[in-house]
Amino acid sequence: MRIISWKKEFQLSAPLQRHFSSAKFTTPQTDRIQPIQMAYSSYELTSIPSISPLIIMHGLLGSKSNWRSLSKSLHAQTCRRVVAVDARNHGESPHNENHSYRYMAEDLRALLTLLEIDRAVLLGHSMGGRAMMLTALLYPNLVKGLIVVDTSPIRTSESINLVDSFLEAMRKIELPPKVPILIAKNIADRQLSTVVKDIATRQFLLTNLLETEEGDCKWRVNLDVLQRYLVKQVANFPLVTNVYNGPTLFIKGALSDYIKDSDAEEIKRIFPNAEFERVEGAGHSIHSDQPSKFVQIVSSFLKKLT
């Protein structure tokens, strides 16, 4: 297996910029979106089998690095090329003043064009799951199958209300200049602990703290933009009239309230061929809580897609 990574701090050239599709929205939209070129890591064999690649997008405040071991496992289990991406304003991808699922869908379409991928299986967790859902609804001809991890197009968990306080706490972190990254993380952890009580959550947030070439430490996520768009964009799935009829799998954590059993009927109106898997002992981050079971479920679904 070889791993190919790409990152660069500028937007796509004009030939790869994309116009809006003619999909019907219930809210006004602009006429044009300029996508960014997302950073990505591609896990692939020297000779790629002629099957659709799997594209993975993380959740809010996550990154492709969170999916490194899972990407390797899924590649090994299915012999399928796996491409893990950093969403805009996250990880190594460019920061941008716009952050919505419509923009993320265009970023994904631009990436498929850049990588010369005709059709792909899309997998997304939380925010990434919603971006993948919208991409499938707008561009079904590009999507071989869809895997949605613990998020719904119907409703949003009440725990989203905590995220704004997390973002605000991260913005208020004060770090002395030129401190090593480990010391910076200890300082940030102590300051975050007054707001973010759960140790695992703090550790996850601190994966976004990095050391610059100048020796200072900073957040790699665009906190200002993410906080600005949290309520009006990230917390709400766009209202569309489209339907995606392709193979679809929703994976729910038994300890999470992001997908409720009562959502199933309404979800199937939008995704008629949706299947549902429930993972016991897992919360919202199913892939972290039960990684072996997660890989098993995803691999089984992928193997049904030719």
Rank of each mutant, 00 (worst) to 15 (best):
I4S: 08
W6T: 06
K7F: 14
K7H: 14
E9S: 12
L12N: 09
H19V: 03
S21M: 03
S21L: 08
F25R: 01
T27G: 01
T30V: 13
Q37S: 09
Y40V: 11
S42W: 05
E44I: 12
T46R: 11
T46F: 12
I48K: 14
P49M: 06
I51S: 06
S52E: 10
H58V: 13
H58K: 08
G62L: 06
S63G: 11
K64L: 13
S65K: 15
R68Y: 11
S71L: 10
K72I: 15
A76D: 07
T78F: 07
C79V: 02
V82N: 00
V83W: 01
D86H: 13
H95Y: 09
H95N: 07
N96T: 15
Y101G: 03
A105G: 11
E106D: 04
E106L: 05
A110E: 05
L111R: 03
L111P: 04
E116R: 11
E116P: 01
I117Q: 03
I117V: 15
D118H: 14
D118L: 12
A120C: 04
G124D: 00
H125L: 08
S126Y: 09
M127L: 12
G128R: 06
G129P: 08
G129S: 10
G129C: 10
R130E: 01
A131I: 14
M132D: 00
L137M: 07
L138M: 12
P140L: 12
P140Q: 10
K144F: 00
K144M: 04
G145D: 05
I147F: 05
V148H: 01
V149S: 05
S152N: 10
E158W: 10
E158V: 14
I160D: 00
L162A: 05
V163Y: 04
V163H: 05
D164I: 15
D164Y: 12
A169M: 02
A169N: 03
M170E: 05
R171P: 02
I173T: 10
E174A: 14
K178G: 07
K178A: 13
P180V: 06
P180K: 06
A184C: 13
R190E: 13
Q191H: 07
L192H: 06
V196N: 02
V196S: 07
K197A: 15
K197Q: 14
F204H: 07
F204C: 04
L205A: 07
L209Q: 03
L209K: 02
T212L: 08
E213L: 05
D216E: 08
D216M: 05
K218N: 05
R220G: 09
R220E: 11
D224T: 15
D224I: 09
R228E: 10
R228D: 09
L230M: 11
A235L: 06
V240F: 00
T241I: 06
V243L: 01
V243W: 00
G246C: 05
G246W: 02
S256H: 09
S256P: 05
D257H: 08
D257I: 08
Y258M: 04
K260S: 07
S262K: 15
D263N: 14
E265L: 13
K268W: 02
R269S: 13
G281S: 14
G281D: 14
H284F: 10
S285I: 02
S285D: 04
H287F: 15
D289Q: 06
Q290C: 10
S292T: 13
V295N: 07
V295G: 02
V298P: 04
S299G: 04
T306Q: 12
T306I: 13
